[in-house]
């Protein structure tokens, strides 16, 4: 009985904190909510220009759907990627930003991190909804793939939440984390096949006389697999390979539980360290 009411009030609090994030994000800006769409649109435009027209990234037509459109190809990777980086960087500052709340009131601290992730999740869902319409307009029948898409979003959210938990709490003890993660994300974007197809990475590469299975190494990066899987479902209209899904499920669930453990281990001291 008490656990049930506790659970309900916890989820209500999560809802309220998420609403607060969403409301305060665009409060007092003339375009308000439109910014959440204009932002990714601008990135999309810039990347399309730079990589498609100046750098001339070559994109073969999809084997399964026949689609050949760089902007759409890019969107499939860019939306999950933005969700990932926005959530994690947003979460890093959230404990420090809510120091007063943490020092003066009691509530499960992880809700601050979850509400930040949830607010970006709302943005992702809206963007994905629009992207689905665009795909339909370009003749890709994406509707049957929506359940698969939702499964991927759930897995990505677990992965994102796990990393957010770890970095947010570490940042309270070492404020460098914020800057460090900023740099890591810059490099990580280019190590992930967001703006280029994974086929651009050679299967193997000889380095100092050692034959490296470069593509395999590339695919250790969970974000590379996520982007690949989103693309499979939306752009190529095919099932991601089973080992991709298995790998992602394993990494996501593990990251989430490691994140929870680290967070719970350290969060007891938040009120005194902030």
């Amino acid at each position: 009985m008490t656990t049930l009411t506790e659970y309900r009030s916890t989820s209500e609090l999560l809802g309220n904190l998420t609403l607060r994030e969403l409301r305060s994000k665009y409060k007092r800006s003339a375009l308000g909510w439109a910014w959440s769409l204009l932002n990714p649109l601008a990135t999309l435009l810039i990347f399309s220009l730079v990589f498609r027209f100046f750098m001339r990234v070559q994109l073969p037509p999809s084997e399964t759907s026949g689609l050949q459109n760089y902007a759409l190809f890019l969107s499939c990777g860019l939306l999950p990627w933005n969700y990932f980086t926005n959530s994690v960087s947003g979460s890093i500052g959230t404990l420090v930003g809510n120091a007063n709340l943490i020092k003066k009131t009691y509530f499960p601290r992880e809700l601050l991190v979850f509400s930040n992730v949830a607010s970006w999740n709302v943005s992702l869902l809206i963007e994905m909804g629009i992207l689905l319409l665009v795909f339909l307009a370009f003749g890709n029948m994406v509707l049957p793939w929506i359940p698969a898409l939702l499964v991927l979003i759930v897995l990505l959210t677990l992965f994102v939440a796990g990393l957010s938990l770890i970095f947010s709490v570490l940042n309270v003890f070492f404020r460098d984390v914020q800057h460090l993660v900023g740099i890591v994300f810059q490099a990580w974007l280019y190590l992930t096949p967001v703006i280029y197809p994974i086929t651009l990475i050679p299967e193997s590469h000889v380095l100092f006389g050692v034959d490296l299975p470069l593509r395999r190494i590339w695919e250790l990066n969970p974000m590379a697999r996520f982007v690949g899987a989103f693309r499979d479902v939306l752009y190529d209209l095919r099932w991601p390979e089973l080992n991709d899904i298995g790998y992602l499920a394993l990494v996501s669930v593990a990251t989430f539980f490691i994140g929870l453990t680290v967070f719970n281990r350290l969060s007891g001291r938040l009120a005194e360290e902030l």
Partner: peptide
């Protein structure tokens, strides 16, 4: 930045209502 009304609901649920 939020109104008194919005804050009542937010703060209330932080306090467990």
């Amino acid at each position: 930045e939020l109104s008194g009304r919005e804050n009542v609901f937010l703060n209330g649920s932080i306090l467990g209502l």
